[in-house]
């Protein structure tokens, strides 16, 4: 494993407000990491520190074991940032070629165009005349221009329609296949769930949860087995089982809350209770998200 990002007790204060508070984490080569958290949790500040655009007040942020401001680092990173708009009177093609010229080993032009889905007729358009979606695609192309090993996407899909969004994430998956390390923030939890292998959940400038989407959901949300209500089923008996934390009836369905859904199912079949319409409910990421950020003291 090669450590690509290492953050050690980084703190960032703006005047008297602490945006990031003694944050530590490390990201390995090839990981796809989603940074989640409510507004003001310190996501963007952390990304800006990783990019070397903000200096931590205390602590250390390193990329490829170097200061993020090193030229050698900038040769190998790419980013799509919020609030960066291309205002140039240059055409899309000119800007892409310009950006490619900045890097020692740029991505092949044709490959870049194919990856970002920019169309032929868009290449001749001036950047300041592009639509919102086209601008995002151009931003994506600029992030990839240097064929970077490490990519940052800060809220990349804001303003994209569903097709564009799907296309974007498909490309991200393809980039992952090539061994790129990808760090992104998003407000769409589903995206983090679908794409990321690892989620860093930020709250008040700290990492409050770090793990696979699955692990985070399991740890934080309740799972349940439910079936259609049936008078022959002994609810009290089920309730008394050690693996069951609660049993209740809702909309004519019996809901058995448990952490071991498999064992509950085994029990139901073993006793031949003749239950019908069985469903297993897994926690959703947004529930976990809500729980973590609302009552942090519970963790």
């Amino acid at each position: 494993m090669e450590e690509v990002v290492s953050i050690e007790k980084a703190t960032k204060k703006f005047k008297d407000k602490t945006a990031v508070d003694e944050l530590s984490c490390s990201i390995q080569r090839g990981e796809v990491v989603a940074i989640l958290g409510p507004n003001g949790a310190g996501k963007s500040t952390t990304i800006l520190m990783m990019l070397g655009l903000l200096e931590p007040t205390e602590g250390k942020v390193e990329i490829f074991r170097m200061d993020p401001k090193e030229k050698a680092v900038r040769e190998k990173i790419g980013a799509m940032l919020q609030e960066v708009s291309v205002i140039d009177t240059l055409t899309v093609k000119e800007i892409i070629q310009l950006f490619r010229s900045y890097y020692a080993t740029p991505m092949d032009f044709e490959e870049l165009v194919a990856l970002t889905g920019l169309k032929k007729e868009e290449m001749k358009k001036r950047a300041d005349k592009l639509s919102g979606g086209q601008k995002r695609r151009l931003g994506f192309a600029l992030a990839l221009a240097g064929d970077p090993d490490l990519l940052f996407f800060d809220e990349p899909t804001v303003g994209m329609d569903i097709t564009a969004r799907k296309r974007f994430w498909d490309t991200v998956k393809a980039l992952k296949e090539k061994g790129k390390t990808i760090i992104f923030t998003t407000h769409y939890l589903q995206e983090a769930d679908d794409v990321a292998e690892r989620i860093l959940l930020f709250h008040k400038g700290e990492v409050v949860a770090d793990g696979t989407p699955h692990a985070i959901k399991n740890r934080l949300t309740k799972q349940s087995v439910s079936f259609i209500e049936n008078s022959e089923v002994p609810l009290d008996e089920i309730r008394s089982l050690a693996i069951v934390s609660d049993v209740y009836v809702k909309n004519n369905r019996v809901i058995v809350v448990t952490e071991q859904t498999d064992d509950v199912l085994a029990y139901l079949f073993e006793k031949r209770l003749g239950v019908k319409g069985i469903e297993i409910e897994k926690g959703r990421l947004d529930e976990a998200f809500e729980q973590l950020t609302k009552n942090k003291e519970a963790i």
């Binding site: 030229k71 900038r74 940032l81 609030e83 708009s85 205002i87």
Partner: peptide, 18 residues
Amino acid sequence: VEERTQGWSLFMRITPIS
């Protein structure tokens, strides 16, 4: 001023060009 207000100057700082 345009380049600074649109975030472009910031963006240029993460490219290898100084």
